[in-house]
């Protein structure tokens, strides 16, 4: 299987320009191929931009994240896949509409997660993080209330990437409790994904981040004991 994707136009703006992907020259013995266009976010998670993939030779994507590299994954009927990078120049949208207006007309929770990820690439994450944080935490809770196994498997990367971001964020007691509830639910549904260690490692990353948070607190306490025991007694 050779030759990669053609993208028109080669340059454009995030959440504004419509991009046309064509994948005409892929050859495989296992006839029907499925193509997925993905991007790697800050948490190093590859997120599918093509809504589960496409099997025709062309595909239109209206909303792309800022960046200069996307990935084309080609999957054959037997489940074998290969991934190649595609180079493109998607610039920051300076006339970015409000997050609310972007999300308003979207009902599907997993599409909302994806749009939030794309939106984040346009804005300084430090400035917008608190605003996005509350929005997406509520979305996550809603999503997990109505979760089915099928949806969980399809949306896994989108959800897990968000939770990784949350676990890096400053968390209140209430939000930590919410995260634990979500993690316990994930434990119930994770079984079909256990053979894919990359996916499992994302979960370890979340636990690692929360562990680190608690570790920082413990270090403060240890410093306190150190001063109390060693300096004050002298």
């Amino acid at each position: 299987m050779v030759v990669n994707a053609k993208i028109e136009p080669r340059e454009g703006y995030s959440l504004l320009t419509i991009f046309n992907f064509s994948v005409p020259n892929w050859i495989s013995n296992s006839k029907i191929l499925i193509y997925k266009i993905k991007f790697e976010n800050k948490n190093k998670v590859l997120l599918d931009l093509s809504n589960g993939g496409f099997s025709k030779n062309t595909f239109i994507i209206e909303k792309l994240p800022v960046g200069n590299k996307l990935y084309l994954e080609v999957i054959d009927m037997q489940g074998f896949s290969t991934t190649v990078p595609c180079y493109i120049n998607v610039k920051i949208n300076k006339n970015l509409p409000s997050l609310e207006s972007i999300l308003d007309n979207v009902i599907d929770a997993s599409k909302k997660f994806l749009l939030l990820e794309i939106y984040k690439t346009n804005v300084n994450t430090e400035i917008m993080s608190d605003k996005i944080f509350e929005n997406s935490m509520n979305m996550l809770e809603d999503y997990f209330e109505n979760l089915t196994l099928d949806n969980f498997i399809i949306d896994y990367e989108k959800i897990i990437s968000f939770i990784i971001t949350f676990s890096n964020h400053k968390l209140t007691n209430e939000n930590i409790t919410k995260l634990f509830k979500i993690l316990n639910l994930i434990m119930k549904y994770i079984d079909p994904l256990l053979n894919d260690l990359t996916k499992v490692e994302y979960l370890f990353k979340i636990l690692d981040n929360l562990n680190k948070k608690a570790g920082d607190q413990i270090q403060s306490i240890l410093s306190f004991y150190y001063i109390k025991n060693n300096l004050l007694n002298k």
Partner: peptide
């Protein structure tokens, strides 16, 4: 320095909370 440490600890504990865990 001990007072400052206690204040820091208090701020840290506010993030963790005291009831749910």
């Amino acid at each position: 320095s001990i007072i400052l440490l206690i204040i820091q600890l208090h701020i840290n504990f506010q993030n963790i909370g005291t009831t749910n865990f």
